[in-house]
Nucleic acid binder design. Structure first.
Ligand SMILES: [Zn+2]
Length: 582
DNA sequence: CGGATTTGACCGGCGC
DNA sequence: GCGCCGGTCAAATCCG
């Protein structure tokens, strides 16, 4: 810093560079200072404005679902209870007779005795009463049955959701392993565990992925399952605050080294850890989205700060560089550029994983993207099937995929070219209404390095379902050197299977969730009609909590739900080109 | 006044 | 080693 030349000199790059390094340092320092950084993240998550939901019909649904999900076990009871009440209320309202019954219902046990007394009084009445009694009991029984069933369903749903997540994690894990086949014993371990038990795996994975050494907690966590995961999250939150995590998250970020002087000097060291950690041989995967939009930038639910603009050699239109500002230190970057041929098409490329939670809208997109990525990952064959499925069979996972992920309706392309693997989602050709029809899924190449990480790298969002359980994970996966290993190897098939499963699952879960929630809610049915889209909702839920701020972890569902209170970011673009039709 | 943009310079990688 | 090129920085500027 001292060395820094007069402000004016922009020509002295080395100095500048150095400065850059400093900045980085500063940032880190800042992060550290705010031990509660994680909190920030959490709050951020909280403040995803509801606006997003409002923007989009689908969003709302997601909301609801989300609640249900999270509530999961703890809130479950309450919810069901509520449900019961509602039920009863309805009944009473509808039938006059019922009113009486209702009362009786409450006192079921006593009924018998009471009846007896009454009987003593008068014969006819007695019979009537008996009848009524019977009716009452019958209804009551029915009601109970229904409630019980409802509860069961909920349980199942919960379970499903959980396993799905676990599975997904597993999948990620496996893929990762393959990608960097490094002799890490850890990897091996994780692998084995993954094969054995899903739940456990999830926990393990988390650990594994987790940058910092929290081995002790792990065991417990592993055993514990989801809940444990939550606790881990807390921990994670703490870590978030720490610089290391940040760096990890940044993954690909490279810190610029200063000119010689700096190097010689000690200063580098502090950064050192970050640098090394951050520095990766391979570029992280990217996700790019093509959408029609007049606006200079599509609204993806995140806040971005422009940090550069350049004229790309290929086209007349400049390319703009943005950085995510939703959370301090969020490493995610994106570049926006108009397509040379068709200027109405806006190409947005995302890189990195968010270190914070994303707004619902963003999550939806993220889901779609990740799902698409997964599909692509699964390999050419799978994709082919997928296409076929689109055309007709709805049983096929791919078909479901499209159903659930509106954004997917178009076309996803995976390209290995360039230093980084890139997944491209083409949203330009979709007719507004039809999700299924036009959609086509393409897998062009199978670049060596595509892995779930890519999905995570995804722009808008963090890994969907995972986030919930693996707060920190986002950091690790994305940056792994893709190059090391392809999906290749004997393992591949299993991976594919996993992927398929993963894809299939979400839908099911989603649909189920939608159905249930709508029923429970008694009000919102839209979800059913529109259906699957709700998947996003699910994901959102997961994300919200997942991100790991301790706060979030503490009261996940609540946080997610309530959070969207007030953050005023102006409802910027109407451009949901992506959202709606584009 | 603080935060976001603008914009020209700077850097590292890559191909020649 | 040089120049191109994609990215990034950060001073200057804009804007609410
Ligand atoms: Zn972000």
């Amino acid at each position: 810093m001292e060395l820094r030349p007069p402000p004016k000199q922009q020509h002295h790059h080395h100095h500048r560079r150095r400065r850059g390094g400093d900045e980085e340092e500063e940032q880190e320092a800042a992060a550290m200072e705010h031990g509660h950084l994680s909190l920030h993240g959490g709050s951020g998550g909280a403040f995803w404005r509801p606006r997003d939901e409002e923007e989009k019909g689908g969003g709302r649904r997601g909301e609801i679902k989300e609640v249900d999900f999270f509530l999961g076990s703890s809130r479950d009871v309450a919810a069901s209870r509520r449900h019961d009440d509602a039920f009863r209320g309805t009944h009473g309202g509808s039938g006059d007779v019922n009113i009486g019954l209702d009362l009786l219902t409450t006192t079921t046990t006593t009924t018998g005795a009471a009846a007896g007394d009454a009987a003593a009084g008068a014969g006819e009445e007695d019979t009537t009463k008996n009848h009524r009694m019977e009716a009452t009991t019958a209804v009551d029984a029915e009601l109970r049955r229904v409630v019980e069933e409802n509860r069961r369903l909920r349980g199942m749903l919960d379970e499903l959701t959980r396993s799905y997540s676990a599975l997904y994690h597993q999948y990620l894990q496996v893929t990762q392993q393959q990608n960097h086949r490094h002799p890490d014993h850890l990897i091996m371990n994780s692998n084995r565990s993954s094969l054995t038990q899903t739940h456990r795996t999830a926990a393990t994975t988390q650990q594994f992925l987790e940058p910092r050494p929290s081995s002790t907690a792990q065991a417990a966590a592993a055993a514990a399952d989801v809940d444990m995961a939550a606790s881990d999250d807390d921990e994670a939150g703490g870590s978030d605050a720490s610089p290391s995590l940040t760096s990890n998250t940044g993954g690909g970020n490279k810190i610029r080294r200063v000119g010689g002087q700096d190097e010689t000097a000690a200063p580098a060291r502090e950064n050192g850890e970050q640098q090394t950690a951050a520095e990766l041989p391979c570029r992280k995967p990217r996700v790019s989205v093509r959408a029609r939009s007049e606006a200079p930038m599509i609204s993806d639910g995140c806040q971005w700060r422009k940090y550069g603009q350049k004229m790309a050699k290929g086209n007349p239109c400049p390319r703009a560089y943005y950085r995510c500002t939703m959370a301090i230190g969020c490493p995610v970057r994106k570049q926006v550029q108009r397509c040379a041929e068709d200027k109405t098409v806006l190409i947005t490329t995302y890189e990195g994983n968010h270190n914070h939670q994303l707004p619902p809208a963003a999550t939806t997109m993220a889901n779609t993207t990740s799902a698409a990525a997964a599909m692509l990952l699964s390999g050419p064959a799978a994709s082919r099937d997928g296409a076929a499925a689109l055309l007709g069979h709805h049983h096929h996972p791919a078909a479901m995929f499209h159903h659930s992920f509106p954004y997917a309706s178009t076309m996803a392309t995976l390209s290995a070219s360039a230093p980084f693997p890139t997944i491209t989602l083409d949203l330009t050709q979709t007719p507004a209404g039809g999700a299924g029809a036009a959609g086509l899924l393409h897998a062009l190449h199978r670049p060596p390095a595509i892995h779930p990480g890519a999905a995570q790298a995804m722009p808008f969002a963090v890994p969907p379902q995972l986030a919930m359980y693996l707060p920190q994970q986002r950091a690790a996966p994305g940056m792994l050197p893709a190059a090391s290993a392809g999906l290749g190897g004997a393992r591949q098939p299993s991976v594919m299977e996993t992927v398929t499963a993963a894809l299939a699952d979400p839908n099911f879960t989603t649909a189920l969730a939608a159905a249930i929630s709508s029923v429970v809610a008694g009000g919102a049915h839209q979800s059913l009609s529109t259906t699957p889209r709700s998947a996003s909702g699910v994901a959102v839920a997961g994300d919200g909590n997942g991100n790991g701020s301790s706060a979030a972890a503490a009261s996940p569902a609540l946080t997610a739900a309530e959070a969207p209170a007030a953050s005023g970011s102006p409802p910027r673009l109407a451009t949901q080109s992506c959202t709606t039709s584009t």
